[in-house]
């Protein structure tokens, strides 16, 4: 379970080495699932990418605990994403041919967030354009990647955490104005 926690922590923090090892170990499994269920190589890449994004968000939730093997959990997330996609493509009663054990997951483990919130994404992307590059980085690092002010200060060359905090205050105020003119 130690290595399993290691993977969870790596995904949580966006550790590129861990993400690479997840790709090396599990992309074949995802590809097999998608290709053997009416998908293409590109579909498999989309599913793998979306699954990691979903896991990133889930693992950063304070109440999350991994109760099954990572492989099973990851397969289940990919399965949900691909089944949702197949049903969206017209197969309302689409069923999957399974190759691994899986657990039942909720709607939140689909890639639907991408489309249901597409409008929101267009809006925030437009609002972010008016912020400086450093503002975009500091906001995403704090609110999305859940990094501490010390980490952000170190990564973005601020003198200390307070300086980074003051900068973040200015950035979020500006973003709120841009989103709600």
């Amino acid at each position: 379970m130690n290595s399993e926690n290691h993977i969870v922590t790596g995904i949580k923090t966006g550790d590129s080495e861990i993400l690479k090892s997840v790709y090396t170990d599990y992309f074949g499994m995802v590809r097999n699932l998608v290709v053997k269920n009416s998908g293409s190589e590109t579909d498999a890449e989309d599913v793998f990418q979306d699954a990691l994004v979903v896991l990133f968000k889930k693992f950063n939730h304070s109440e999350f605990r991994l109760a099954v093997k990572f492989k099973t959990y990851f397969y289940s997330v990919c399965r949900n994403i691909w089944l949702t996609e197949l049903r969206k493509r017209g197969g309302r009663n689409a069923r999957l041919k399974d190759f691994e054990h899986h657990v039942e997951l909720g709607y939140e483990f689909t890639s639907n967030w991408k489309e249901t919130q597409e409008e929101a994404f267009v809006k925030v992307e437009k609002a972010m354009r008016y912020l400086g590059e450093k503002c975009q980085e500091i906001l995403l690092m704090y609110y999305y990647q859940k990094q501490s002010m010390q980490q952000i200060a170190a990564a973005l060359d601020y003198a200390d955490a307070d300086s980074a905090k003051a900068q973040k205050y200015k950035c979020i105020r500006q973003l709120k104005r841009n989103l709600n003119p």
Partner: peptide
């Protein structure tokens, strides 16, 4: 309300940005 709204949008932005970055890495 505005801050909750901004954070929700930032999470969407973050997910899309992370997805694009992952695709390049893949």
């Amino acid at each position: 309300r505005q801050q909750i709204h901004a954070v929700e949008h930032l999470e969407i932005m973050g997910a899309v940005t992370m997805g694009k970055s992952l695709r390049r890495d893949m």
